[in-house]
């Protein structure tokens, strides 16, 4: 396989096949954990770790797993890495653990993770699977940071916890609350569609 090909495996997750903005996968954590840019980043990185690790293991043992029990096997592998993230985060970054709460164990059911294991890692070699996991994970993280950033700027008038002093009061609270999450994501997806269309034409 040529180098451009390797590069495209890595970068396709950033924009062209972005898990959240284009494929509309992993929406629950994308909406639920992005009250601020930092939380979005924490969630994104945790997901990326699980994504890369499960991609590695799945691609290593893909030939040992009978087809019919493939999904349950993948789920156990993914759940194992999720629990590792869960325990380590609880032990070493308790504040982030508290902020992400239920959404950490729920990485197990993030369609992105199982989706990549099934669609990519089970058919490709280890190196490509690592690249795919990294690319998809970074794209996911990027999406969460953007959504978290937009919500934090509009909702609390700050970014990464730094006050921007753009609002006289507290900012547009609705963006920190549930409805704002849906609305902000809706507009960001519309913008991403537009950008992707431009690239296709060019």
């Amino acid at each position: 396989m040529s180098n451009t090909n390797k590069l495209s495996i890595l970068t396709k997750g950033f924009l062209k096949e972005n898990a959240v903005f284009v494929m509309l996968l992993g929406m629950c954590p994308a909406l639920g954990t992005t009250t601020s840019a930092v939380n979005g980043m924490g969630m994104g990185l945790a997901t990326m770790f699980v994504l890369v690790m499960s991609n590695i293991v799945v691609s290593l043992i893909k030939n040992l797993i009978p087809d019919k029990v493939r999904i349950p096997s993948y789920i156990v592998i993914i759940a194992t890495f999720v629990t590792i993230v869960d325990l380590s985060m609880h032990a070493y970054i308790p504040s982030l653990y508290k902020a992400l709460g239920l959404f950490i164990p729920l990485i197990v059911v993030n369609c992105v993770v199982l989706g990549r294991a099934e669609a990519f890692a089970s058919k490709n070699n280890v190196l490509d699977s690592i690249l795919d996991g990294l690319g998809m994970g970074l794209g996911f993280t990027l999406a969460l940071v953007i959504l978290g950033g937009v919500r934090e700027i509009l909702g609390s008038g700050s970014i990464f916890g730094i006050d921007l002093h753009i609002f006289p009061g507290d900012g547009m609270l609705v963006f920190v609350l549930a409805p704002g999450a849906f609305i902000a994501l809706g507009y960001i997806i519309a913008i991403t569609n537009k950008i992707n269309k431009k690239f296709q034409k060019a």
Binding site: K62, N63, L64, I65, P66, D67, K68, V69, P72, S73, V76, I77, A79, T80
Partner: peptide
């Protein structure tokens, strides 16, 4: 390239058992 494992009751339960215990 190694051939894919066949889906027999034995292989399926064995694989799941091994994965679960390793996990």
């Amino acid at each position: 390239m190694a051939t894919k494992m066949k889906s027999t009751i034995l292989s399926m339960s064995l694989v799941l058992l091994v994965i679960a215990s390793l996990s």
